[in-house]
């Protein structure tokens, strides 16, 4: 049978793409499967069991680390989202003005610097402050996380704002709304999907962070990722697979939510 000439193919490309997707998902699949292993090994399959999930859930170190991760992420993502929303309002739909590129540069700076560099720089400064003030609480982690969450929260909020017609705010002002009323009644409701998307991105980014947390944390302030990093040095049991699987499921859930929120058009 004669087939028409397909301009959209290249020899071998589909095969490499198939390899790419397989390579991306196979290791994760193996990791998840062994979380359900009945045995102690992460190499030998000994039957299906949920025992490692039970073990992980009842491990107080895991519970504390997970809770700490969530607390930090909630605080950091919330502060970052509020700050990023304000910054987006000040840097969008204004034309260019003196200082605008400076603001862009500062707001995006955390994306440009290798994480390890920021991490040790924070270690230097925070260790000194810890000595001076005696305070060793979660504040340092929250501050550090907020800083690198800001560019991630900023991106979707700014994109949303840029697609909004500034005539809407003009119309509100024309209809006797004060600047605050116009913001509250018009800008904010329309900006909400962008703000939600920004928050979710920031939340995932904070939750996932390993490097900066590892260097900034005080003694006993393990988050879930740094706890896992510590565990990987020892003989690993499927417990860590179980933790990773739950973590993974949670992240994927947020990312899926992010996709749906971000897709909703104005």
């Amino acid at each position: 049978m004669a087939r028409s000439f397909d301009v959209k193919t290249q020899p071998g490309f589909a095969l490499i793409a198939a390899f790419c997707f397989a390579a991306l998902y196979l290791p994760i699949a193996v990791l998840v499967i062994y979380a359900f292993n009945a045995g102690e090994s992460i190499a030998v399959w000994e039957g299906f069991s949920l025992r490692w999930f039970v073990t992980a859930m009842s491990n107080t170190a895991v519970q504390e680390a997970a809770l700490r991760s969530v607390v930090i992420a909630v605080f950091a993502a919330s502060i970052a989202t509020v700050a990023a929303t304000m910054a987006a309002l000040a840097t969008t739909r204004q034309g260019t003005y003196p200082g605008l590129s400076f603001k862009y540069a500062v707001l995006n700076q955390p994306l440009m610097i290798p994480e390890i560099v920021t991490a040790v720089a924070l270690l230097i400064v925070f260790s000194r402050i810890k000595v001076w003030t005696g305070y060793t609480g979660l504040g340092y982690l929250i501050a550090a996380h907020t800083a690198f969450c800001i560019p991630f929260a900023y991106l979707p909020i700014r994109a949303r704002l840029e697609s909004m017609d500034s005539a809407l705010e003009a119309a509100a002002a024309d209809l006797y709304a004060s600047p605050w009323q116009a913001f509250r009644r018009i800008t904010l409701p329309l900006l909400k999907p962008g703000i939600m998307a920004g928050f979710m991105l920031a939340f995932v980014i904070s939750l996932d962070d390993v490097v900066i947390t590892e260097f900034v944390k005080s003694g006993g302030q393990e988050t879930l990722p740094t706890y896992m990093l510590g565990q990987l040095r020892r003989v690993v049991t499927p417990e860590i697979n179980a933790i990773a699987t739950v973590f993974l499921a949670f992240s994927v859930l947020i990312v899926i939510m992010f996709f749906f929120v971000n897709r909703r058009k104005a």
Binding site: D165, A167, L168, A170, A171, A172, A173, D174, L175, Y176, A177, S178, P179, A182, R185, I186, P189, L190, A266
Partner: peptide, 29 residues
């Protein structure tokens, strides 16, 4: 400022508030 002038505008792009209904738009002012 515009919100203190007893003058209203019909905008070229209409600038209707997309998150409000027709009646809510009319009630806004």
């Amino acid at each position: 400022p515009p919100y203190k002038r007893p003058v209203n505008t019909v905008f070229q792009s209409y600038a209707l508030f997309p998150h409000l209904t027709v009646a809510q738009n009319i009630a806004f002012g």
